[in-house]
Amino acid sequence: MLKAALACGVLASIHVTALLADFASPVPFATQQREYAFAPPTHIRWFDREGGFQLRPFVYARVDATNVKRYPVQFFVHGSSYQLGPVTLDRHLFGVAAPARLFLLGTDGFGRDQFSRLLAGGRISLTAGWLATILSLSIGTGLGALAGFYGGWLDHSIMRIGEASLTLPWLYLLLAGRAFLPLGVPAASAYLILIAVVGVLGWARPARVVRGLTLALRERGYVVAARGFGATSGYILRRHILPDALPVLVTQAAILVPQYILAELTLSFLGLGIDEPVPSWGNMLAAVQHYNILVSYWWMLVPALAPAAVSLCCFAIGDALLRRRRAVPL
């Protein structure tokens, strides 16, 4: 159980950090420091060039080639102002004094701080990932449970429609949707609308899983007994079947969340991704998919770890739930 608690903690902290991205990041995500294009992660030092140990970590400034002046890493520094809920703040978690720069994860081709973008990108990507996952899972669970529980022609038609919907060329509808959205819609909202549509369209796979589960559960002794006692179908679904489906749904979420985060890559291929300069894990990863970046700038790969961490936490939680309930897996 310890592991699951840890996973929950990590998951929560990822979300909180994303929420507080403006505070936790040293510079705004859109600021282009053009003279620092593709700068590698800044070397944070404890030892100066004479070999003397410094208690407070520091960096050297690039403009100062002789590396004499140390710029210590400071906490709760003043910087550009941002909105946190109703209040305007200008404190940032950490930073260094100009002209030194502190790029924890390096910069991209415009000289934008990758660390700031990773945090801010989490906001969009996590929202998008969860939004689409919840939509897929809730529609999928509803239809899957219906199909599995009632069976017969209902089961048959739901499953066949699901099959068909997997092959339909939905992306034309998405292209059309993008064409109908006014140009003035902010980048993030436009993307969330599209990913919500993608989420709704993704019901078929979870539906199949839930259907299988329901088929197995409805023959269980306690379900048959409940039915014998005159329980209504709605009651059985609500009381016996859905709770047992929970661990499976969490595991499904572990698969779906990263999938929907990455769906942006495909979408941006079609001009349906988030527009510049708004960052997301999807468009940060899209940048690495180019050969020249992959071989030249290794730090651009780091964003791939973010969705992986989310997925791993969900897997751990799903497994723990599964073990505790001793329920039928999947």
Partner: peptide, 14 residues
Amino acid sequence: VRVVSLEFRSLLDR
């Protein structure tokens, strides 16, 4: 300025 990227035919259509 807001940057909007569109797939090529969608752009041409506009």
